[in-house]
């Protein structure tokens, strides 16, 4: 275990890619396909880690999952930071966007819609979205980052000869 390369750099790169793709408007819609960018970030981290391994050593699924999990945690933090930055410059999570989401979701219960409307009108939306977003990202990105790491391991690990 001590001879293994560090997982930090592959996880940071995977998490960074995950966050950039998940934060930019329009591009972030790719996450609507089962967290595609998060899976990609986890898979990329596993791929980069497998490249660091000594010649002849295979990437185990446990290591792939772990590097994907770490990438997911970094990705969640970076995504929240980038999203906060977008809020600060007034680029994303504007009340109009949230209202659009609420109106397009016909099944959204009225009491929930009212609550969101109150938050929007009181101006508490930005901080609410950042905290809620960080919490949700930590859960989602760690789960899907781990699964991405496992997918990356399945696809990129070299078969034993």
């Amino acid at each position: 275990m001590d001879n293994q390369p560090s997982k930090l750099v592959p996880a940071l790169i995977g998490g960074g890619v995950m966050a950039v793709l998940s934060s930019f408007p329009l591009i972030s819609l790719g996450n609507c396909l089962c967290c595609m960018w998060v899976l990609l970030g986890g898979g990329l981290a596993a791929y980069l880690y497998s490249k660091e391994l000594p010649e002849g050593e295979m990437l185990s699924s446990g290591d792939g999952a772990l590097v994907g999990l770490i990438a997911g945690l970094f990705g969640a933090l970076f995504t929240s930071l980038l999203s906060s930055l977008f809020i600060l410059i007034g680029f994303r999570f504007s009340p109009e966007i949230l209202q659009d989401i609420m109106e397009n979701n016909q099944d959204m219960p009225p009491e929930f819609r009212d609550l969101m409307h109150n938050w929007t009108s009181e101006g508490g939306l930005g901080s609410f979205m950042v905290i809620m977003g960080l919490f949700m990202n930590l859960i989602m990105d760690s789960i899907f980052g781990t699964l991405g790491g496992l997918l990356g391991t399945a696809i990129f690990s070299k078969q034993k000869k």
């Binding site: 609507c32 967290c35 099944d107 009225p110 929930f112 989602m140």
Partner: peptide, 18 residues
């Protein structure tokens, strides 16, 4: 339990186009 339903819907918003 409309509030709970709203939270569930919001939970899946980033995961699926719905």
């Amino acid at each position: 339990y409309g509030f709970l339903a709203g939270l569930i819907k919001l939970f899946y918003t980033p995961l699926c186009h719905q």
